[in-house]
Structure formats: C-alpha cells, structure tokens
Write a protein that binds this DNA or RNA. Structure first.
Length: 94
DNA sequence: TCCGTGACTGACG
DNA sequence: GCGTCAGCCACGG
C-alpha cells in the first residue's frame, strides 16, 4: 500500500502537459478530499524534480506558492504548456 | 504518542 | 472583494 505521500506524487506526475489540478482534486484522488493541506505540505517537503508540482494550483485558480516563490515563474511555465489563464491572472480550471 | 508546521479551503464579517 | 478564523490532514522530531 502506497503512503498518502506516494499517491500524491504519483497523481501529480500523471497530470498531462497543459492541464492542471487543484490541491483539493489531488487530495481527493489520493483518498482524502480534505487533505489538501497535507498535499501542500508534502509538495513543499518533496524535492523530486520529476514531479510537475507547478501543475497543482489552488481551488480558486491562484497559483499559490512554488518552492518558496510566489506565482510568477510557475504561472509562466504553465502558460508555456498551454494552460488557459483568465485576464485576472488565475488559472482557468477545467 | 503528542506537538508544531504548512505550497490549502471554505465560511464570516 | 478582502482580511481573518478555524478546521483539516500528513509528516518529522
């Protein structure tokens, strides 16, 4: 049985290019819809570069934080992958 | 086992 | 629309 941590990593790694998921969605898919906070904690501690954590955004579409950096680089990266953004600068959730 | 921490979320005022 | 509060959960010491 994979630990919650491992599930989260696996799920995030599975997110296709040009697509994004919210922390809540990842948490739900990992087994606990309310563990969104735990997901954030795991991502923050995780250092595996093969995990496209920049594809994980907040439920309100905000990019949240990315390895200590606030938004910007994460947002640009997502745009390059084809993710749709609103004029307000938030991610257009599917 | 208990406690502190945090890349979150939804509800209120 | 924005700031604050409290609940939520996994992890490490």
């Amino acid at each position: 049985m994979k630990s919650f941590n491992q599930k989260v990593i696996d799920i995030v790694t599975t997110i296709p290019r040009g697509k994004v998921m919210t922390y809540g969605q990842v948490a739900a898919r990992a087994g606990n819809a309310r563990a969104s906070r735990a997901v954030g904690t795991i991502m923050a501690k995780n250092t595996d570069i093969s995990v496209p954590c920049h594809r994980v955004v907040r439920s309100d579409g905000g990019v949240g934080m990315y390895n200590g950096l606030r938004g910007t680089s994460k947002q640009v990266l997502l745009k390059k992958e084809g993710v749709q953004f609103t004029k307000r600068g938030t991610v257009a959730l599917q």
